[in-house]
Amino acid sequence: MLDDRARMEAAKKEKVEQILAEFQLQEEDLKKVMRRMQKEMDRGLRLETHEEASVKMLPTYVRSTPEGSEVGDFLSLDLGGTNFRVMLVKVGEGEEGQWSVKTKHQMYSIPEDAMTGTAEMLFDYISECISDFLDKHQMKHKKLPLGFTFSFPVRHEDIDKGILLNWTKGFKASGAEGNNVVGLLRDAIKRRGDFEMDVVAMVNDTVATMISCYYEDHQCEVGMIVGTGCNACYMEEMQNVELVEGDEGRMCVNTEWGAFGDSGELDEFLLEYDRLVDESSANPGQQLYEKLIGGKYMGELVRLVLLRLVDENLLFHGEASEQLRTRGAFETRFVSQVESDTGDRKQIYNILSTLGLRPSTTDCDIVRRACESVSTRAAHMCSAGLAGVINRMRESRSEDVMRITVGVDGSVYKLHPSFKERFHASVRRLTPSCEITFIESEEGSGRGAALVSAVACKKACMLGQ
Results as ranks from 00 to 15, higher is better:
residue 6 A to P: 09
residue 11 A to P: 01
residue 14 E to K: 12
residue 17 E to I: 12
residue 18 Q to A: 13
residue 20 L to C: 14
residue 23 F to K: 05
residue 27 E to N: 02
residue 28 E to C: 08
residue 28 E to N: 10
residue 30 L to W: 09
residue 40 E to L: 03
residue 44 G to V: 03
residue 49 T to M: 07
residue 52 E to Y: 10
residue 60 T to D: 03
residue 68 G to P: 15
residue 70 E to Q: 09
residue 73 D to L: 09
residue 73 D to V: 05
residue 74 F to A: 11
residue 74 F to W: 05
residue 74 F to H: 09
residue 75 L to G: 08
residue 78 D to N: 05
residue 81 G to T: 03
residue 82 T to Q: 01
residue 82 T to C: 03
residue 83 N to K: 05
residue 84 F to L: 04
residue 85 R to L: 02
residue 87 M to Y: 15
residue 89 V to W: 02
residue 93 E to V: 06
residue 96 E to F: 10
residue 98 Q to T: 13
residue 98 Q to G: 13
residue 99 W to Q: 07
residue 103 T to F: 02
residue 103 T to E: 13
residue 105 H to K: 02
residue 106 Q to P: 02
residue 107 M to K: 05
residue 107 M to F: 08
residue 108 Y to S: 02
residue 108 Y to W: 00
residue 109 S to K: 09
residue 110 I to F: 05
residue 115 M to C: 05
residue 115 M to Q: 08
residue 115 M to D: 03
residue 118 T to L: 03
residue 118 T to E: 02
residue 119 A to W: 01
residue 123 F to R: 02
residue 128 E to K: 11
residue 134 L to R: 02
residue 135 D to A: 05
residue 136 K to I: 10
residue 136 K to Q: 11
residue 137 H to C: 13
residue 139 M to I: 07
residue 141 H to L: 01
residue 142 K to N: 09
residue 142 K to Q: 07
residue 145 P to L: 12
residue 157 E to T: 05
residue 159 I to R: 01
residue 161 K to S: 01
residue 165 L to P: 04
residue 168 T to G: 02
residue 168 T to I: 02
residue 171 F to Q: 04
residue 173 A to P: 07
residue 174 S to N: 02
residue 175 G to E: 02
residue 176 A to C: 11
residue 177 E to D: 00
residue 183 G to M: 00
residue 184 L to Y: 00
residue 189 I to F: 02
residue 192 R to T: 12
residue 196 E to D: 15
residue 198 D to S: 07
residue 199 V to W: 00
residue 200 V to C: 12
residue 203 V to A: 01
residue 204 N to I: 02
residue 217 D to W: 08
residue 223 G to E: 03
residue 225 I to K: 05
residue 232 A to G: 04
residue 232 A to D: 02
residue 235 M to A: 03
residue 236 E to L: 04
residue 236 E to T: 00
residue 241 V to Y: 04
residue 242 E to A: 06
residue 247 D to N: 05
residue 247 D to A: 06
residue 250 R to S: 11
residue 252 C to M: 12
residue 255 T to E: 08
residue 259 A to S: 07
residue 262 D to W: 12
residue 265 E to R: 13
residue 268 E to F: 10
residue 270 L to P: 07
residue 276 L to D: 14
residue 280 S to M: 02
residue 283 N to C: 07
residue 283 N to K: 14
residue 285 G to C: 05
residue 290 E to T: 03
residue 292 L to M: 14
residue 294 G to A: 13
residue 297 Y to A: 06
residue 302 V to K: 07
residue 303 R to S: 08
residue 305 V to D: 03
residue 308 R to P: 08
residue 316 F to Q: 08
residue 317 H to F: 14
residue 318 G to A: 15
residue 318 G to Q: 15
residue 321 S to D: 09
residue 328 G to F: 11
residue 336 S to G: 06
residue 338 V to L: 10
residue 342 T to N: 13
residue 342 T to A: 06
residue 343 G to Q: 09
residue 344 D to S: 11
residue 346 K to L: 13
residue 349 Y to V: 09
residue 357 L to D: 07
residue 357 L to W: 08
residue 361 T to F: 09
residue 362 T to M: 11
residue 366 I to S: 09
residue 367 V to Q: 00
residue 370 A to L: 08
residue 372 E to S: 13
residue 376 T to A: 14
residue 377 R to W: 01
residue 379 A to M: 07
residue 380 H to Y: 12
residue 381 M to S: 06
residue 383 S to I: 02
residue 384 A to R: 02
residue 386 L to H: 02
residue 387 A to R: 03
residue 388 G to F: 04
residue 390 I to P: 06
residue 402 M to K: 04
residue 410 G to L: 08
residue 411 S to G: 08
residue 415 L to C: 13
residue 416 H to E: 05
residue 417 P to C: 12
residue 418 S to K: 15
residue 424 H to G: 10
residue 424 H to C: 09
residue 427 V to E: 01
residue 427 V to P: 06
residue 431 T to K: 02
residue 433 S to H: 13
residue 433 S to W: 11
residue 433 S to D: 14
residue 435 E to H: 12
residue 440 E to H: 15
residue 445 S to C: 00
residue 445 S to Q: 04
residue 450 A to P: 01
residue 454 A to E: 02
residue 455 V to W: 15
residue 455 V to A: 14
residue 456 A to L: 15
residue 456 A to S: 15
residue 456 A to E: 15
residue 457 C to Q: 08
residue 459 K to D: 15
residue 460 A to K: 15
residue 460 A to E: 09
residue 464 G to W: 08
residue 465 Q to V: 14
